[in-house]
Design a protein around this nucleic acid. Structure first.
Lengths: 154, 154
DNA sequence: AGCCATAAGCTAACGGCCGTAAGTCTAGGA
DNA sequence: TCCTAGACTTACGGCCGTTAGCTTATGGCT
């Protein structure tokens, strides 16, 4: 038997590339997953489809974390934790792909008022996006709870 | 006399590429500015230096707009206006490059308390980053003033 | 004024990585 | 046994960064 991997292996390999912030190219993915480049076409039509799959998987994880929280503060902190834990993945989700709409919907499930939900998410996103790129995380996490409670009571 | 352009032409060409969200490669810039590729080396050591110059120029413009505002609300709106007017440039500034520190400093000049300045900027950045990528701008601009005043009085 | 060193401007090419596809080989069911 | 579909190798064309080398203009010196 040969390998040629399965869809899941490919997504895992691509995710690893994202986390190391390498470019997600067919060749890089095939190297990472140790399968021939052209075998990828058996599972995906092209590179962008792989990236989309990575984002969908990552978003599902983020969604579970947020919905598993007991109150608004915990949900906000869970959101920020995800971004701090997987900074590159977070940036790809809202940079290359556009998962803003699903994220918004996510917070309307936590916080009924849509305007407040949007405001909260925008603030969280600003913080998450920046904590993803710099070494300011210390200062940022300190004021996260204040930011969240402030935004949730506009 | 020949062309070969000058530093300014190169930055302008690269900025145009960013705004059209094309990749800023030496060859793309040289095509855009109508100069030979290798002439770029007379002004820049490589592609990333060009992108940095683009970001610096854009940030100077953003800074002028924010500092020209009369009060905090106007400053916040000026910040958002810039992002809405030059969405790709904004994303490159805080994505590829990291202009978070300067932006933070900028708001400590508008708003004395550093913690409040940071909170305000994080909220603005979240909104700006998302208004840059989607057609939600309508809904977003409506709640911008509320967001700003709410954040500026944490 | 005439000449030459120097630097600017440019063409062309090298090697590398990319997406994609054509073609070969192999295993396993009809 | 033959046929089909998965797995794989190889190659094509394109864009990239970078550099070597040619041509042309410039400016100081005799």
């Amino acid at each position: 038997m040969t390998k040629a991997g399965c869809r899941q292996d490919i997504v895992a390999a691509a995710t690893a590339l994202v986390d190391r912030d390498c470019a997600v190219t067919l060749r890089a993915v095939s190297r990472e997953a140790d399968i021939p480049t052209s075998s990828i076409y058996l599972h995906f039509p092209g590179p962008s489809a792989i990236l989309l799959a990575v984002c969908r998987t990552a978003f599902a994880e983020l969604e579970a974390a947020v919905l598993g929280a007991s109150d608004v503060l915990a949900a906000g902190l869970a959101y920020l934790d995800f971004a701090a834990l997987h900074p590159r993945r977070y940036r790809v989700m809202f940079g290359a792909a556009d998962f803003a709409e699903p994220a918004l919907l996510l917070f309307t499930r936590v916080l009924a008022d849509p305007a407040v939900a949007m405001t909260l998410w925008l603030g969280l996103h600003g913080l998450a996006d920046q904590s993803a790129s710099t070494r300011r995380s210390q200062r940022l996490t300190e004021l996260a709870p204040r930011l969240i409670t402030s935004l949730a009571h506009v």
